[in-house]
């Protein structure tokens, strides 16, 4: 059996440890459109961070920058003190280390799946690493996410939730240090969402998860980063404090106001609707 690196009990993140990910003054433009404005934060090893923002606030772009796939227009991103850009990743040694230690779960799982079977999909990473005991390894991760009955099937024939699990297993099979997740619950039904929250909570690994689903945010991490509609970072702090700050949430377009009727009394207040 493969060694189980992710245990269910995890130590508290060290407050004084050197940052795992560090973002310094990142701005990004696409043509005339501003996508990100002067973003800065650091994430320490083992932290579980949630990145909140409405649609179009630049969350996906930020994750792609943190995965070294896009070069930001301005600013720097460091992984374990090393600057990461697509250009610097052309160096094979850095590329190999970074790609095996920082994994990105795309919002659309279909974009990630191209191997002929679920088995090959999960084996794709370990094969490139030349890791031993391929069979055991694949089975281990397939068991952990619950797709071991589908190992022989082609990934495109699975349901949306199953595809997401295969993607997760494929990424975790590399045993990365950082997992970036882009709206991982957007395509999931409530039961799979619950499963995913528990599963991610049990991983002893640094995670940065984006969502526009406010009620789910506290389940996905303890610290929240919020991207405002002006594409700048308008909050960085404990998630509980955020949830009571209705003005900030309204500014980020994460809550809205509308009229309610209860019997024949009508009133108006700020309010969350989370839809899938």
């Amino acid at each position: 059996m493969t060694e189980l690196r992710y245990r269910i009990i995890k130590p508290a993140p060290a407050q004084d440890a050197a940052p795992m990910l560090e973002v310094v003054g990142i701005s990004h433009r696409y043509g005339a459109a501003e996508i990100l404005r002067d973003i800065g934060f650091a994430i320490r090893p083992g932290e579980k961070v949630v990145l909140l923002g409405c649609n179009g606030s630049g969350k996906s772009t930020l994750l792609k920058i943190l995965n070294g796939l896009i070069a930001p227009t301005a600013g720097q991103f460091h992984f374990q003190g090393e600057e990461i850009t697509p250009l610097r990743l052309k160096a094979p040694a850095l590329h190999r280390r970074f790609r095996s230690e920082v994994a990105l779960l795309f919002q659309n799982p279909d974009a990630m799946l191209f191997n002929p079977s679920v088995f090959d999909e999960i084996a794709f990473g370990p094969r490139q690493m030349g890791l031993p005991n391929l069979d055991d390894r694949v089975r281990h991760w397939a068991d952990l996410v619950g797709v071991s009955q589908h190992l022989a099937r082609p990934p495109f024939s699975l349901s949306g939730g199953e595809k997401q699990k295969v993607c997760l297993a494929a990424l975790l099979a590399l045993e990365p240090k950082v997992l970036l997740l882009d709206e991982p619950t957007a395509a999931l039904d409530p039961r799979s969402t619950g499963w995913l929250v528990d599963f991610l909570g049990g991983l002893d690994i640094t995670t940065l998860t984006t969502t526009h689903n406010l009620s789910l945010a506290p389940e996905l991490g303890s610290r929240a980063l919020v991207l405002g509609e002006d594409h700048s970072l308008i909050h960085d702090g404990p998630i509980q404090a955020l949830l009571t700050d209705m003005n900030l949430l309204a500014a980020a377009n994460l809550v809205h106001t509308h009229r309610h009727r209860h019997g024949n009394i009508e009133h108006r207040h700020t309010h969350v609707h989370d839809w899938q």
């Binding site: 792609k64 590329h95 659309n108 974009a111």
Partner: peptide
């Protein structure tokens, strides 16, 4: 946009 994601996902998952 999807085409970009397909391209980037392969890049993201490739160690070599």
């Amino acid at each position: 946009r999807a085409h970009d994601d397909f391209r980037l996902a392969l890049a993201s998952r490739s160690l070599t």
